[in-house]
Amino acid sequence: MRRITVIGGGFAGLTAAITAAESGAEVTLWEAHRTLGGRARTAEGPYRTNEGPHALYSGGPNWTWLKQRQLLDPVVAAPPLALARLRMHLGGTLRRTPPFALLRLARRAPEQAPVDQDFLTWATGEVGADGARAAAHFIGVALYHHDPGSLSAAFVQPRLHRVAKVPPEARFVRGGWGTLIDRMAGRARELGVRIETDARVTELPTGEGPVIVATSLDAARRLLRDESLHWTGGRTALVDMALRTRRGDPWVISDLDAPGWIERFTAQDPTLAPAGEQLLQAQLPLAPEESKEAGVAHAERLLDVGFPGWRERVTWQRSSVSAGRTGAVDLPCTTWRDRPAVRRGDGVFLAGDQVAAPGLLAEVSFNSAIEAAGLALASSRLESTS
């Protein structure tokens, strides 16, 4: 039995542990928190919130992998009635349809977008300045970044192309992502993975075979004492709120005047809040100098135009700032291949959403975890034959 240690019990860590165990490795997984999940952790209590808006995309590799292992169900799509209530905030008012230029741009093949040019400049040349700005702000939902137009066009365009697909690729885990994490943990334990929670690792284990570090990049930098582990990420205000139900509330408000997104998650999953209430989750990207209060004020401006009487209907709310936990973004002249490598040397491998792997949102964690597990298994085989 080849031994592999996984540090971190989020989506990436569990993916790596399952992959390694399916190949016959003896796997131990260590998680510092008392529960598994990382950014995919779902809050306990009557309001089942995730750390910001969460969705799976049916065109991604993690979708196929989870489906093959019967770990997806129940997953729901947005119902047609909810789709009819998608609203765009542009010029200070709500509209039912996005600008035609945004739709034109979203149809452009991702391969057309250059690596060495920022998205706003490239998109302006394709559809004009107004459409380019609207598209840059629209895709903020998938980037958690205050200025998507400044990022590499080759990074932004594939995400715009997928997020704007009709019918949408987005699917939602019923009960919150914590239910998916529970199913993944159950699968790992069935395969013999030893899972230790509330167990912070401060030193790499020695003599226990390869190690997969599946933590945030900041935590990996401290653990590995490797100051090269840096990459550009987003910073965003997260606002969660429960309102008493009112007929006619929008499903989504996408701000095209500045990056921002409010989604009524109970439209597709009523189990996330008590009966008679609806759960909203908002994501408002922040510039480096902006405060949480600026993000909350942005959310309130969107609520004012889209959710009449929302202040009198509030039954619960909270807000926070997420920094360094929002995934990688690529500046002009860089790609995912330039991010910190999965292979770190000396039998150590890295997985997570800011490392060198392709994909949209959680797909980066998934792809890096699959690669890390494969490299760890190959490393174990080499050790056993030497």
Score class of each variant (00 low, 15 high):
I4A: 06
T5I: 14
G8I: 09
G10I: 05
L14V: 08
T15K: 02
A16E: 07
A17P: 12
S23Q: 15
S23C: 14
A25S: 13
A25H: 04
V27P: 06
T35K: 07
L36Q: 08
G37K: 04
R41F: 13
T42H: 03
Y57I: 03
W65M: 06
Q70A: 15
P80Q: 03
A82Q: 07
L83R: 14
L83T: 08
A84C: 08
M88G: 06
M88P: 00
L90M: 05
L90T: 11
L94S: 11
T97K: 14
F100R: 14
A101V: 04
R107T: 10
A109S: 15
V115R: 01
V115W: 00
D118A: 05
D130N: 10
D130L: 13
D130C: 01
A136Y: 03
A136T: 09
V141M: 12
H145I: 06
D147W: 01
F155I: 03
H161G: 00
H161R: 07
R162F: 00
R171W: 04
F172I: 05
L180G: 06
L180N: 07
R183H: 11
A185D: 09
R187F: 04
A188I: 11
R189I: 11
T197F: 01
V211Y: 04
S216N: 09
L217Y: 03
L217V: 08
A219P: 01
E227K: 13
G233Y: 11
T236C: 15
V239A: 06
V239T: 10
M241R: 14
L243Q: 10
R244A: 10
I253V: 15
S254C: 11
L256S: 04
I262Y: 00
E263V: 14
R264C: 10
Q268A: 14
D269A: 10
P270A: 07
L272K: 10
L272I: 02
E277D: 11
Q281S: 15
Q281P: 03
A282Y: 01
P285S: 09
E289M: 09
S291A: 14
A294F: 03
G295F: 06
A297C: 00
A299E: 00
E300G: 00
V305R: 10
P308N: 11
G309P: 08
R311Y: 06
R311A: 07
R313C: 02
V314P: 02
W316V: 09
W316N: 07
R318T: 14
S322A: 15
A323K: 13
G324E: 08
T326W: 02
D330H: 10
C333A: 12
W336A: 11
R339H: 11
P340N: 06
R343E: 15
Q354T: 14
V355H: 03
A356N: 05
P358H: 12
G359N: 05
L360N: 06
F366S: 02
S368E: 09
A372W: 02
S379A: 15
S380A: 15
S380R: 13
R381L: 15
E383R: 15
